[in-house]
């Protein structure tokens, strides 16, 4: 770590890598998922859109869309924490193949827990990595809308980690 590194260089590197990962996943674009970063901590945003509705009567968000949002939160968070050291060493943005040479974790299983209906407004999510081993990872995701302490959904998933996150790094 270089304590004298200019702030704008640090932000450019970290935000650049993060945005590259999100932009590389078409399904994240389909749901229009956004990410905000404070240091290494990520918060995900699912902006409300009419197409996310599953119950037009209430109206309420479709559970499957919320599931996709939480799964993306888990996968991107897992990737982010795993490549942190390489990113800080400046290996990623100097790599012209990044992010196309990025290997993502693969979902083994995911269990969704729907606590209350998702309302027709923005949703937020944050992931906690409970275990991240060489092969397997276990991740918990919380999703909320107005109040963080009133979760509307949560999930736990298991993921198969890639042998290498960055392909070109042989």
């Amino acid at each position: 770590m270089n304590a004298r590194e200019p702030l704008q260089d640090i932000k450019k590197r970290r935000d650049g890598v993060l945005q590259s990962i999100v932009n590389a996943i078409p399904f994240a674009q389909f749901l229009d998922v956004r990410v905000e970063r404070m240091g290494n901590e990520l918060s995900f945003i699912l902006p409300y859109d009419k197409k996310l509705i599953g119950n037009p009567m209430l109206p309420a968000l479709h559970g499957g869309g919320v599931a996709g949002f939480m799964e993306l939160t888990a996968i991107i968070s897992l990737t982010w924490y795993s490549i942190w050291d390489d990113m800080e060493a400046g290996k990623l943005l100097s790599d012209e193949n990044f992010p196309s040479d990025l290997n993502l974790p693969k979902t083994i299983d995911i269990t969704m827990d729907y606590l209350r209906p998702g309302l027709a407004r923005d949703a937020y999510a944050r992931a906690t990595i409970n275990r991240s081993g060489r092969r397997y990872a276990s991740v918990h995701v919380e999703a909320w809308q107005d109040k963080h302490e009133r979760l509307f959904a949560q999930c736990t998933g298991h993921f198969l980690m890639p042998e290498q996150f960055i392909l070109s790094e042989k």
Partner: peptide
Amino acid sequence: IGDPQTGVIHGG
């Protein structure tokens, strides 16, 4: 698509 490397549909 969820995995741009392979073109596989996202689990979500």
